[in-house]
Lab assay of single mutants.
Amino acid sequence: VGEWSCVRCTFLNPAGQRQCSICEAPR
């Protein structure tokens, strides 16, 4: 899977990211 949706702000982050780029919530 290439990306994941943040549970807090729904931003689509790259699969390699451990936390959201926008709101910094953990994956």
Results as ranks from 00 to 15, higher is better:
4 W>T: 15
15 A>R: 09
8 R>G: 07
5 S>F: 04
20 C>E: 00
15 A>C: 05
18 R>N: 02
3 E>P: 04
20 C>R: 00
3 E>N: 10
6 C>F: 00
12 L>F: 06
16 G>D: 11
6 C>T: 00
2 G>Y: 13
11 F>R: 12
4 W>D: 15
6 C>I: 00
2 G>S: 07
6 C>W: 00
22 I>Y: 11
3 E>Q: 07
18 R>D: 07
1 V>R: 05
11 F>A: 15
4 W>R: 09
12 L>I: 03
3 E>S: 03
26 P>A: 10
23 C>R: 02
2 G>D: 12
5 S>I: 03
3 E>F: 13
9 C>Q: 01
4 W>L: 09
25 A>M: 03
20 C>G: 00
25 A>E: 10
24 E>K: 09
15 A>P: 10
4 W>Y: 15
2 G>I: 14
3 E>L: 02
18 R>F: 07
23 C>W: 01
16 G>Y: 01
19 Q>W: 04
24 E>Q: 11
27 R>L: 10
19 Q>H: 01
25 A>T: 07
24 E>T: 15
5 S>Y: 06
18 R>T: 12
20 C>D: 00
18 R>E: 09
4 W>A: 07
26 P>G: 08
5 S>D: 03
4 W>I: 13
24 E>S: 12
27 R>G: 12
20 C>T: 01
15 A>K: 09
17 Q>N: 06
4 W>F: 14
1 V>H: 02
6 C>Q: 09
6 C>R: 01
25 A>S: 06
16 G>C: 03
19 Q>E: 04
26 P>T: 10
15 A>F: 15
24 E>M: 13
14 P>K: 05
3 E>C: 07
23 C>A: 01
25 A>C: 08
25 A>K: 09
6 C>K: 03
2 G>Q: 10
26 P>C: 06
16 G>I: 09
16 G>W: 02
15 A>H: 00
22 I>S: 15
16 G>L: 07
17 Q>C: 04
23 C>P: 02
23 C>Q: 02
6 C>N: 09
1 V>K: 14
25 A>G: 11
17 Q>E: 09
2 G>F: 11
1 V>N: 05
26 P>M: 06
20 C>A: 00
14 P>F: 03
2 G>M: 15
15 A>M: 15
24 E>W: 06
17 Q>V: 13
19 Q>T: 07
12 L>E: 12
25 A>L: 05
25 A>N: 10
26 P>Q: 09
24 E>V: 09
21 S>T: 11
11 F>K: 13
20 C>V: 00
22 I>V: 10
26 P>D: 08
14 P>L: 05
14 P>D: 14
16 G>T: 09
6 C>D: 04
20 C>M: 02
21 S>R: 06
16 G>M: 14
5 S>Q: 13
19 Q>D: 04
19 Q>R: 02
19 Q>C: 05
3 E>H: 04
17 Q>S: 11
13 N>K: 03
5 S>H: 08
22 I>K: 15
16 G>R: 02
6 C>P: 03
2 G>L: 03
19 Q>Y: 01
22 I>H: 15
11 F>E: 03
10 T>I: 08
18 R>K: 13
3 E>I: 05
16 G>F: 04
3 E>W: 07
22 I>L: 05
26 P>K: 11
14 P>W: 02
26 P>F: 10
3 E>T: 06
20 C>N: 01
21 S>D: 03
17 Q>G: 11
2 G>E: 15
16 G>E: 10
3 E>G: 02
22 I>C: 14
25 A>P: 11
20 C>P: 01
2 G>C: 13
23 C>K: 00
25 A>F: 01
21 S>M: 04
20 C>K: 03
19 Q>K: 04
2 G>A: 10
5 S>R: 09
20 C>Q: 00
6 C>E: 01
19 Q>S: 02
4 W>C: 08
14 P>Q: 10
21 S>Y: 13
20 C>L: 00
27 R>E: 14
27 R>W: 12
19 Q>P: 03
19 Q>A: 01
14 P>N: 06
16 G>H: 00
5 S>E: 05
6 C>A: 02
26 P>W: 06
14 P>C: 04
23 C>H: 05
4 W>P: 15
20 C>H: 00
13 N>L: 04
6 C>H: 03
15 A>I: 03
6 C>G: 00
5 S>P: 06
15 A>G: 08
17 Q>R: 03
22 I>E: 14
21 S>H: 11
19 Q>V: 02
14 P>A: 05
4 W>N: 14
27 R>N: 07
24 E>R: 09
20 C>W: 00
25 A>Q: 12
18 R>S: 13
24 E>G: 10
12 L>T: 12
25 A>V: 07
19 Q>L: 03
4 W>K: 08
15 A>T: 13
19 Q>M: 14
21 S>W: 05
5 S>A: 06
21 S>V: 03
24 E>A: 12
5 S>C: 01
6 C>S: 00
23 C>T: 03
3 E>M: 04
3 E>V: 05
1 V>D: 04
22 I>T: 13
24 E>Y: 12
17 Q>M: 14
22 I>M: 08
1 V>W: 06
17 Q>T: 09
22 I>D: 14
22 I>Q: 14
21 S>G: 04
5 S>W: 04
25 A>D: 13
25 A>H: 12
11 F>S: 15
17 Q>K: 06
27 R>Q: 14
21 S>F: 06
22 I>N: 14
18 R>C: 05
24 E>P: 14
17 Q>A: 15
18 R>H: 12
4 W>E: 14
10 T>L: 05
16 G>V: 08
1 V>S: 10
16 G>K: 07
4 W>M: 15
2 G>T: 15
14 P>S: 12
12 L>R: 04
4 W>G: 14
9 C>N: 01
15 A>E: 07
23 C>I: 00
27 R>V: 12
15 A>W: 02
25 A>Y: 07
21 S>Q: 12
24 E>N: 05
22 I>W: 09
22 I>R: 14
17 Q>D: 15
16 G>P: 12
16 G>N: 11
12 L>D: 08
24 E>C: 13
3 E>K: 02
15 A>N: 11
17 Q>L: 08
5 S>T: 10
18 R>P: 10
14 P>G: 08
1 V>E: 11
5 S>M: 06
18 R>W: 06
27 R>D: 14
6 C>V: 01
22 I>P: 04
5 S>L: 05
14 P>V: 04
26 P>N: 07
24 E>D: 12
22 I>F: 10
2 G>N: 13
24 E>H: 15
9 C>L: 02
1 V>G: 05
1 V>A: 05
18 R>Q: 12
19 Q>F: 07
21 S>E: 04
21 S>P: 14
17 Q>W: 08
1 V>L: 07
6 C>Y: 07
18 R>L: 08
27 R>K: 12
15 A>S: 11
4 W>S: 13
26 P>V: 08
2 G>W: 01
17 Q>P: 10
25 A>R: 10
15 A>Y: 08
22 I>G: 15
13 N>S: 09
14 P>T: 05
11 F>L: 09
21 S>A: 06
23 C>M: 03
23 C>S: 01
2 G>P: 07
18 R>A: 11
27 R>S: 14
27 R>T: 09
21 S>N: 08
6 C>L: 01
18 R>Y: 02
15 A>D: 11
23 C>Y: 00
23 C>G: 02
20 C>S: 00
27 R>C: 11
16 G>Q: 05
14 P>E: 07
21 S>L: 08
26 P>E: 11
27 R>H: 13
23 C>E: 02
2 G>V: 12
23 C>D: 00
26 P>R: 11
14 P>R: 03
15 A>L: 12
1 V>Y: 15
17 Q>Y: 05
2 G>H: 08
18 R>G: 08
21 S>C: 04
4 W>V: 09
26 P>Y: 06
23 C>V: 01
24 E>L: 11
2 G>R: 12
3 E>Y: 13
1 V>T: 03
12 L>A: 15
7 V>I: 13
27 R>M: 11
21 S>K: 02
15 A>Q: 02
18 R>V: 08
27 R>P: 15
10 T>F: 03
3 E>D: 09
15 A>V: 04
24 E>F: 11
27 R>Y: 07
1 V>I: 15
16 G>A: 08
5 S>V: 09
1 V>C: 08
22 I>A: 13
4 W>H: 13
17 Q>I: 10
23 C>L: 01
5 S>N: 11
6 C>M: 02
3 E>A: 01
5 S>G: 06
2 G>K: 13
14 P>M: 14
10 T>W: 10
4 W>Q: 05
13 N>V: 11
24 E>I: 10
1 V>F: 13
8 R>S: 01
19 Q>N: 05
26 P>S: 07
27 R>A: 07
19 Q>G: 04
26 P>H: 13
25 A>W: 06
26 P>L: 06
3 E>R: 01
5 S>K: 12
18 R>M: 15
21 S>I: 01
1 V>M: 14
20 C>F: 00
14 P>H: 06
18 R>I: 10
16 G>S: 09
